[in-house]
Write a protein that binds this DNA or RNA. Structure first.
Lengths: 338, 338
DNA sequence: CGCGCGCGATGAATCGTTTCAACGTTACCA
DNA sequence: TGGTAACGTTGAAACGATTCATCGCGCGCG
């Protein structure tokens, strides 16, 4: 990329044209009330004539302050993070801030690189979905004055702010819904427990089963799938269908997985929900639009992002751990007549 | 938000600790080959010890160059733009650039505000999906040295680069597919022609019909829907079902609309495709996962973004108008046995 | 008439980096 | 041995804004 050739017009050019000092131009820009209406107008028309735009780097360098925040999510193409990002953007927008956004693809090195870039650019703070369990690197960032907010992850360190959704409660609510409908033998298509969300959702499910007085080992068939998408759902469902004592309901770690499950059940001519009830997680846009509308656990993604930005912008330095409660959305995949 | 209090450690601190001049530290940072291994190592360990991070504002101020680009899309929560953004990010990442991202919500004022913010931050250029037909404001930006790339919109001005998808060809391909299958009476659930994509897709459809020697007025029922989503699709489809001479195929302006159409057909017990073939547009992730997998026109969204970033980063100042060809993905909603 | 006050405007210092002309060493060759 | 080329390092200027001590001026008051 070639360097920008044209020199940007500076505050000095404006000052010369308006026949005032640079300090006065700066005052017009930042404290218009301190300058007399006559000169102010002269300066303003000079600004307009030169179509002057102030140089944010110089401004930031001297004033130290900046109106940019960074966010690092796992993958912006994932609808969950998309909605979170939109929530962040909306809140920052209210405050006149701009957002620098990046996807880490769960690669800690990529995450670190973006963090450094953001820090160099002088962001006020970063909202980050950590790629790994470690958050040491974030603590050192904070020591250098950046504000840190953990996204979609309760903070292991009470001094760091975080916003998350209670996955354990969400999974428990879904399980209770199935128990209420009379299901006593559940399958759970889940990812590996190294992923926090997967571990938490498993725990929530087990909570609900024990609460109901069931023997968890008997009542729950947890099947670990590697791909948390439709193909993973299909593979897992095929396993379930091959079982001798087939569960009567399947819970899925997310809606894409549920999509694969529904597809497989349809192919096997197992009616939903009478032959097998299905529950998803996330409540993505199309969940309600499927052939069999999907019961799912809705996460307040937009609010998650909004609140994260809120914490970042907060006057107070006091850390805060926000946990949202998810909401079960009941549809025909559990209560229908199919 | 309270100001950052701690003074960041500067290149001078590093220089003092390493007992060299600031110029040398700068050389270690930017042209390590020009400094002797001994001093380089001394400087590097001083950097590590102080955990020094260079101040991007000062760097940018002096060097004039910066590795940030901006992008403004209509709505980052829309899967189409999400994938485009991801393509942009991936390309920028290769070049070590960071992305500032914003959604304009089709509000020209919001767009203008973000453009100004980006310019103040000194971005090298912006990729923008214009909110309105006017691009005057972008031309003035370019005069001030920013690079401009239009997204998802062929440029009306040959001096401005752009990347777009050929909507007319995409719609024509879909129509030809339906004609090949023997359909001679089509419905088109489309948005208002003030939206460029809608107008282009309508034109493409008409192209294909005329080519096939059909009387367009007879063969095409274009129904204007206001909401380009599932509800709009439902309302439109109900209109179609109420027609005396019912078309045998329905083309939809996007996949969400098609989703609504499928839902309505199912409720009316019209088999797809034997009673009514359905085609969508965009080929979003779930299009292939529906009860009746949806034939759709795939847009190369990721490549769109990737290429846009490419143009922005290009050495050459020569403007380029890139038009991608969409690809028809045939599935059971047109060729199935249902 | 003189003094002090307050309002506006001034301009130099400052932020932290990059860049570059200049300088001191060392090495090499005539 | 003297001259020069190459190399590594230095130190100060420059980027463009903000900030603040200072100054000039007009006005009111004693």
């Amino acid at each position: 990329m070639p360097p920008r050739t044209k020199r940007r017009t500076s505050i000095a050019d404006v000052a010369k044209l308006a026949e005032v000092s640079v300090g006065t131009v700066s005052n017009v820009l930042n404290r218009p009330d301190r300058v007399s209406p006559a000169t102010r107008e002269r300066v303003e028309s000079a600004i307009a004539e030169l179509s002057f735009v102030r140089n944010g780097s110089a401004r930031q360098l001297r004033a130290g302050t900046i109106t940019t925040a960074g966010a690092i999510v796992l993958d912006i193409a994932n609808p969950f993070f998309t909605d979170v990002a939109r929530g962040i953007e909306d809140r920052l927008d209210e405050a006149g801030y701009t957002l620098m956004l990046a996807s880490s693809d769960e690669d800690p090195e990529r995450e670190a690189r973006y963090l450094r870039l953001f820090e160099e650019h002088g962001v006020q703070g970063v909202m980050v979905v950590p790629s790994g369990p470690e958050i040491e690197h974030l603590l050192t960032l904070r020591e250098r004055g950046l504000r840190i907010v953990l996204l979609d992850r309760p903070s292991p360190d009470p001094s760091v702010s975080s916003v998350a959704v209670d996955d354990r409660a969400g999974a428990a609510a879904a399980a209770r819904h199935l128990l209420d409908l009379g299901h006593e033998h559940l399958a759970f298509l889940n990812g590996p427990h190294t992923i926090r969300q997967c571990a938490d959702r498993s725990a929530g499910l087990r909570d609900a089963l024990s609460e109901a007085g069931l023997d968890v080992d008997e009542a729950l068939e947890e099947i670990t799938i590697t791909a948390l998408n439709a193909d993973g759902g299909q593979a897992g469902t095929e396993q379930i269908l091959a079982m001798d004592a087939r569960p009567t309901a399947t819970m899925c770690v997310n809606d894409l997985t549920a999509l694969g499950a529904l597809r497989t059940l349809r192919a096997a001519e197992v009616p939903v929900p009478s032959g097998m009830a299905v529950v998803g997680y996330d409540d993505v846009t199309f969940a309600g639009e499927l052939a069999t509308p999907l019961t799912s656990v809705r996460q307040p993604m937009h609010r998650l992002g909004h609140r994260a930005a809120d914490l970042l912008l907060a006057e107070s330095e006091a850390p805060e751990q926000v946990v949202f409660q998810p909401e079960l959305v009941v549809r025909e995949s559990t209560t229908g007549t199919g």
